[in-house]
């Protein structure tokens, strides 16, 4: 044994103790983080039942789009068709049911990310579905100018809600869009075009 060995042993023990302390601390912090995240990611809406008969929307997605529609389309007190009278969620459900399975799976992940993104993005500490109107609107606006993923997800949610609303003919009078006119105008069908004649001479 050399004179340096006790010091080295002590140093090693200290280092081991330090590493153990570090490990325990990290584990405790992680556990706290996971517990906090798990606590924050819960929403009172998780306990709220959704109408039966959804073809494609999960319960979480239903609540997400319901919240998004309320924020994106403040029709109350305006000339626009009241949101409650337009089957926005039913239309979204129908659209999603038509997606290819692979695309639908990716969309599910994206929607979950959009919902849970509010836990961290903006430090709201709660999911998008639990944000108040001003926070939710701000969330949309910030994501619309955020990074590529944020822009994409904000766009997807907005696009689906808006398409689902504006595809309904009851929304058109407010913007004076005429909608289908052929029947109203009594347009007669001209039928098939006559068979070409004399074509070979010129071709």
């Amino acid at each position: 044994m050399t004179s340096n060995e006790p010091t080295a042993l002590l140093q090693a023990m200290t280092r081991r103790r330090f590493l153990r302390w570090l490990l325990y601390s990290a584990a405790a912090a992680s556990t706290c983080g996971v517990v906090a995240f798990a606590w924050m990611k819960r929403s009172p809406l998780d306990q709220v039942a959704v109408p039966v008969g959804q073809q494609s929307l999960s319960a979480a997605e239903y609540h997400l789009f319901r919240r998004a529609a309320a924020v994106l389309l403040p029709t109350e007190g305006r000339v626009f068709a009241p949101l409650a009278q337009i089957p926005v969620l039913e239309n979204i459900d129908s659209m999603l049911a038509l997606l290819a399975p692979a695309v639908r799976d990716e969309l599910s992940i994206g929607l979950a990310l959009f919902d849970h993104g509010a836990l961290v993005s903006g430090w709201h500490g709660k999911r998008f579905v639990d944000l108040n109107n001003a926070q939710a609107l701000d969330y949309f606006d910030r994501w619309a100018t955020g990074n590529t993923i944020q822009r994409t997800l904000a766009t997807v949610v907005k696009k689906m809600v808006y398409v689902a609303y504006w595809r309904d003919a009851n929304t058109w009078p407010a913007i004076e869009f005429d909608g289908p006119v052929s029947d109203r105008w009594g347009l007669a069908s001209l039928g098939n075009a006559p068979l070409p004649t004399d074509q070979e001479k010129r071709s």
Partner: peptide, 12 residues
Amino acid sequence: EQGAGDEHIEYM
């Protein structure tokens, strides 16, 4: 891209 909320309403 039409914005969100009141901005979308104004757009339409």
